[in-house]
């Protein structure tokens, strides 16, 4: 006689044993699949993370752009504040193929300001229309601007912002420019010397250099103005008026006309 109860117990144990592999396989499958899905999700979500990570540099880039914009606007402001004639000056510089020598010049800022102030009326009158003589006047600032160009080039490098501008005395500036003029006979340099002497009150030398400039290039308005102003200062008012009239007749220079009017009116003595 079979012991049914004992046999059922053995069968129950056997069933549990037989289910163990199935259960373990199904559990392992669930675990594997869940791990797989987790990895898959990670893989799918990882590009988003990357994108967010990348987004930060983008924002930083945008910030950088903003900063750059601010910097450029700042620089632009500075550039704007600085002589607008910069490109024109470089043009003349190129035409006169004496660029390197000009860069070496380091005029005093004080002198530059004085020159600009002195030339203000002429520029204000002749700025809006083309005048061939205008080019003559521009080299005056060109030397200064070259210095500015150098300083601007240092703007991106904050540690090199400290610009050492040697303030030479005016006489030394003049001698240096004269020596350079003797080498290349650049009318811009002679005009510069003329203006400088005029500023210093040495009207005779100013007259001479303006004359030299006019001989080299008779279409430089500022040179003729310095020339006639020097004549007036030397007491040769009539000669100055005659020269101006002659020049106005040729060039129709408004600056020259204004000066002539001032001489007639007695405002310029």
């Amino acid at each position: 006689m079979l012991n049914i109860i004992e046999l059922e117990k053995r069968w129950f144990k056997y069933k549990i044993k037989s289910y163990i592999p199935h259960i373990s396989i199904s559990i392992s499958l669930i675990v594997i699949s869940s791990v797989f899905f987790l990895i898959l999700n990670d893989v799918q979500s990882s590009p988003k993370k990357v994108s967010t990570k990348k987004a930060l540099p983008l924002t930083s880039l945008s910030e950088k752009k903003i900063i750059n914009k601010v910097q450029t606007s700042f620089q632009e402001e500075h550039v704007q504040k600085k002589p607008i004639i910069l490109p024109v000056v470089t043009q003349t510089n190129i035409t006169k193929n004496n660029f390197q020598n000009k860069i070496q010049l380091s005029p005093s800022l004080d002198f530059m300001k004085k020159m600009q102030n002195s030339l203000q009326p002429y520029y204000s009158n002749s700025a809006n229309r083309y005048n061939p003589l205008q080019k003559v006047e521009e080299p005056k600032t060109e030397i200064v601007v070259q210095k500015e160009v150098i300083t601007q080039s240092y703007i991106p490098k904050p540690q090199k912002r400290s610009i050492n501008i040697k303030r030479q005395n005016t006489q030394n500036d003049i001698y240096e420019i004269i020596s350079r003029f003797k080498k290349n006979s650049n009318p811009a340099l002679s005009l510069f010397v003329a203006k400088k002497y005029y500023e210093l009150g040495d009207y005779e030398k100013a007259y001479n250099y303006a004359l030299i400039t006019n001989k080299i290039n008779k279409n430089i308005e500022s040179s003729w103005i310095v020339f006639t102003k020097s004549l007036v200062k030397l007491g040769k008012r009539d000669k100055a008026i005659a020269t101006l009239k002659q020049y106005i007749k040729q060039s129709h220079s408004s600056g020259a006309r204004i000066l002539l009017d001032e001489i007639y009116a007695g405002n310029f003595k």
């Binding site: 046999l7 059922e8 053995r10 069968w11 144990k13 056997y14 069933k15 044993k17």
Partner: peptide, 12 residues
């Protein structure tokens, strides 16, 4: 299965 266990055909 119970028969197989009893006859030794299944090792339970």
């Amino acid at each position: 299965e119970m028969s197989a266990i009893h006859t030794g055909l299944i090792d339970a």
